[in-house]
Design a protein around this nucleic acid. Sequence first.
DNA 1: CCTGTTGGAGAGTTTCACTATCCAATGATT
DNA 2: AATCATTGGATAGTGAAACTCTCCAACAGG
Lengths: 213, 213
Amino acid sequence: MRLSELSEKSGVKTATIKYYLREGLLHPGRRITATQADYDERHVRRLRLVRALIQVGRLPVATAREVLSHIDDDSLGRTIRLGAALWSLPHGPDPDEEAPETATARAEVERLLDRIGWATSQEIGSLSPTYRALVSSVATLIRLGYPCDIDYLAEQAGLMHQVAVQDLDMMETHPTESEQVEMAVASAVLYEPLLMSLRRMAQEEESARRYGL
Amino acid sequence: MRLSELSEKSGVKTATIKYYLREGLLHPGRRITATQADYDERHVRRLRLVRALIQVGRLPVATAREVLSHIDDDSLGRTIRLGAALWSLPHGPDPDEEAPETATARAEVERLLDRIGWATSQEIGSLSPTYRALVSSVATLIRLGYPCDIDYLAEQAGLMHQVAVQDLDMMETHPTESEQVEMAVASAVLYEPLLMSLRRMAQEEESARRYGL
DNA sequence: CCTGTTGGAGAGTTTCACTATCCAATGATT
DNA sequence: AATCATTGGATAGTGAAACTCTCCAACAGG
């Protein structure tokens, strides 16, 4: 398959494909001659994943490249590999260490994690981008004066844990490690908007139930 | 309070505040003279909300303006007003009507909503951006060949409903309608990343529990 | 052999969110 | 009252990001 065919099949312009090739998001095709390369189905699939990451997940190109490199890298163990891929994903801005509410937020998060008994978080979590993102989110809430009730967060965390159990169950249905890692990335990037859509619909549903239209 | 004071209090440069004024995200201050205006606490608060929408929620300026206009508009009933504000929020790309998987996705979503018995969705939902976003998400999953199990989605939807109940309970703690609508917007924009952080932490936690480190 | 296409490289374009510069009017200080 | 920084407003410029265009030599097909 040549570049123009790849473009047709994927619905992505050749110029854009060239750009992705240049940026290393897409593996170069098998070189046939000095001026021609051969692409296959894997390129089509990869291209779609790239588009999903960039357009649906809104990842910057550089971040997408990093995530993809972890999907490709089979030299690591599953958990590390999964973590590496997930940790490359955007988590919002890092907490501003100088802001006074960051300290408050950190304390709140500690209390929360302590309450719900998540062990991982306290051991390796303070280095994890996820943890930092959580602190950052809480700090933002505090800074803007929005309530950040620990009981509410604990309830939500419990529900999110149930969600995560479902997620991992689904991941386990995939045979290979590569697929599981890719699934985890997809779960983070593609299922997040889906879940949030469900949340908003549930809010509308519940609002109608309580207050009518 | 003058522009420079507003800038100090909010931590936003005067040039940026001027830009927001120009773009209609911030109400103009009370004009004192031909060259001076007076701002108050509401401007500080509004400015923080704007920053939250744009920086945390990554809304385009035009979208933020639209959302804010719904928060300001007290001519509508609560549910409609809430819906209007939430519906202005970004939901990802609209589903591509021409793509074959959109039809499949729509059918899947119908089955799902039927299964979990969300009435609102089926009556007014097909017009709602949230519904369209859901269809778009599902279509993307299908197009990329990721599984989209209806049992899994139904489970997740049930959990999201529990989340929404918590959300509305929290909203009800606010006295005025304006505050409730603002809270709903904040909930969508600020709590979403927080929830997703919790989900990822829960995934890491559960992964460690199942497979060790 | 000739014409059109291909892959590759670099420069150019667009969009967006700011940001810097000017300007006349003003307020604050001397 | 004289001076001088500041203010609000308008306009143009900046920087990053994601493409997109242009050009070119090397082919491939007829």
